[in-house]
Amino acid sequence: PGVLEPTSTLVRVARTASTLGIAIEGGANTRQPLPRIVTIQKGGSAYNCGQLRVGQVILEVNGISLRGREHQEAARLIAEAFKTKERDHIEFLVTEFN
């Protein structure tokens, strides 16, 4: 009681282009503790998906929490999730709230 759950959304991004096409900033021990989407590149898989927005904060990728991960590690986890051949998509848990 008294604690508001921020709204989070599960977004599935199909691998429809050779790149994911997002830029992220943030990570543990920075002013932005969870990775935030700062750019979505036209023609990338994320753009084609149509459900990701600049400003959204990425909480999880394929069910892996990004909390406590430094920038490089968060970026590596997202890059690996995009590259893995086991799936033809990535699942992001995102929120509009910081």
Binding site: I24, Q32, Q72
Partner: peptide, 15 residues
Amino acid sequence: REKRLTLPPSEITLL
């Protein structure tokens, strides 16, 4: 605590 104010900005990575 002023700790939050001293945290550095993050780099940006294109994925």
